[in-house]
Design a protein around this nucleic acid. Structure first.
Length: 215
DNA sequence: TGCCAGGCCGGGT
DNA sequence: ACCCGGCATGGC
């Protein structure tokens, strides 16, 4: 099998086992962005509490967060962990959005996604995974999101070397699959589902997972 | 009860 | 250019 076939085979197996994941779990594109920042190295359970707090205070809005004092914001998002630094990152993001795009994500997304990616990556606290999540799940662009699960699962099945870069893993998917946002959406979500359930850190091999006898 | 979660930055080699 | 500690809560 060539790369394209292997990647499709993985997708089919995961989709057959886990079914549709319905990502991203948010009501608006802005909420996706907030979630993408808050979920950095944190469990989604905790992040959803932080988002619920924001929602209850009607703060899922760029201008409201822009005006909110940093310490108040930190207190509100506390359950997601790393709350001081994440409050700063959130403020950096809304500052960018409000001051450069009138607080409108549509304006940011109304340009070539590669340009948007470069701009977002300049914001302190937004790295590649966070930015790509925003582009795919909030912007609907065909950008593949790579995370620790993606790396672990591919590496464990001998599909990538240990020292590959983020961009190399991303290219593997983007150059061997059709540029379909729906596909990339589901694929990344399925890799996360697989990593949470089977391919955990301590598991030496994935005995029960759908990718067991792959390669 | 520890370990870990949908990363990223900054400082030291 | 890499490596590592710091950031912190809550679930399992």
């Amino acid at each position: 099998m060539d790369k394209s076939e292997i990647l499709k085979e993985i997708f089919e197996r995961l989709y057959s086992y886990f079914g549709p994941q319905h990502w991203w779990p948010a009501k608006t594109p802005f909420e996706v962005c907030v979630g993408a920042i808050l979920t950095q190295n944190a469990s989604w359970k905790n992040v959803s509490k932080a988002i619920k707090n924001l929602e209850e205070k009607q703060l899922l809005d760029p201008f409201r967060i822009y005006k909110l004092p940093l310490l108040k914001l930190a207190e509100i998002i506390k359950p997601c962990g790393f709350y001081n630094i994440k409050a700063k990152r959130l403020k950096e993001f809304v500052k960018f959005l409000v001051e450069k795009y009138e607080g409108k994500l549509e304006k940011l997304f109304n340009k070539d996604w590669k340009e948007a990616r470069e701009e977002l990556l300049k914001i302190k606290g937004l790295g590649k995974e966070t930015v790509d999540s925003i582009l795919l799940y909030a912007g609907g662009f065909p950008v593949f999101v790579v995370d620790a699960y993606t790396y672990r699962i591919l590496n464990r099945h001998y599909l990538i070397e240990e020292n590959v870069t983020y961009e190399e893993i991303q290219s593997l998917f983007m150059e061997n699959l059709p540029p379909d946002p729906k596909l990339f959406n589901e694929y990344h979500a399925l890799l996360v589902a697989c990593g949470k359930n089977f391919c955990k850190k301590k598991d030496p091999i994935c005995e029960k997972c759908s990718l067991k006898d792959l390669v």
